[in-house]
């Protein structure tokens, strides 16, 4: 795959939940090597977009299509999408008591590897890989033995998401407000992790409410989501304008 190949193409996407329409004709194209940021006020549908892309069953697609790597994404089961290389770093990662991080991530990695025709890693191979990547995120020694997200601080939960992303090496990473709840040190560490995955054959969709994250992760494109549509797109300077003027600047008069 080379720079410029289309990874994700969203065409006229209408989607909602429990009869409530949230996305109302969203269009977005992401090519290999690109980092796109989606910004928008609370409740504008950012998490809805990430949930629809990941295949959460409560969400209903009313109209439109989503093509991922030339395939109809919306037809795939969530785990199939994951194995095809779509990764979602959750805004609110759930706790899974009793299942430790090592076991969980090793199962996930081997599912993905099997799907890609690679050999499964055994426990030792996995541990070597995991320990190396843990250093990068400054995760504590006992991290792998702890239950997934159980009793984690907000920062640890977000680090865990990025840790999983780095191990699973997705083609398209969707990061839903990964910066929220992070102190400045954690923000720096997490951003470094994300930047490390910035590669010519991969793409990132970074969802955020604040401009702050984009000082660390410099996007190629910034889109403003409001009222279920992308109402403005631009380069990284758009984020700064938003910071200065607020979302009202764009949404005023649009209802």
């Amino acid at each position: 795959m080379n720079n410029g190949q289309i990874i994700l193409e969203i065409k006229n996407l209408h989607a909602g939940i429990e009869g409530k329409k949230i996305l109302k004709g969203l269009n977005l194209t992401i090519k290999a090597g690109e980092v796109h940021a989606i910004m928008g006020p609370n409740g504008s549908g950012k998490s809805t977009l990430s949930a629809v892309l990941a295949g959460k069953s409560e969400y209903e697609v009313i109209e439109g299509e989503v093509i991922y790597m030339g395939k109809n994404l919306l037809e795939m089961a969530p785990e199939e999408r994951a194995k095809e290389g779509v990764f979602l770093a959750f805004q609110y990662p759930v706790e899974i008591p009793g299942v430790n991080c090592a076991y969980f991530l090793k199962s996930a990695l081997n599912e993905v590897r099997k799907y890609r025709g690679l050999s499964e890693l055994d426990a030792i191979e996995f541990l070597n890989l995991a320990k190396e990547k843990m250093k990068l995120l400054e995760l504590p020694e006992d991290f792998l033995k702890r239950s997934v997200n159980e009793g984690f601080s907000g920062g640890e939960k977000k680090k865990n998401e990025i840790f999983q992303m780095i191990i699973l090496e997705p083609t398209l990473a969707i990061l839903d407000e990964t910066d929220s709840g992070l102190d400045i040190d954690a923000l720096r560490i997490v951003s470094e992790g994300i930047n490390q995955m910035r590669k010519p054959d991969k793409a990132q969709l970074v969802i955020t409410h604040y401009q702050r994250l984009l000082n660390y992760i410099v996007p190629d494109f910034v889109h403003v989501l409001a009222n279920g549509q992308i109402i403005k797109s631009g380069g990284k300077e758009l984020a700064l304008e938003l910071e200065e003027h607020g979302y009202d600047w764009l949404t005023n008069g649009k209802g």
Binding site: G55, S57, P78, E79, A82, V94, G98, A108, V112
Partner: peptide
């Protein structure tokens, strides 16, 4: 008392783990 929630299963699905395997994983952990 705890519950295997849709959200836990979806979280596993999103990492490539099937629903049945996710339930087994959670139950075995339990």
């Amino acid at each position: 008392t705890s519950k295997i929630g849709e959200d836990q299963i979806f979280y596993c699905n999103q990492r490539g783990v099937s629903t049945q395997d996710a339930i087994n994983m959670i139950v075995n952990g339990f």
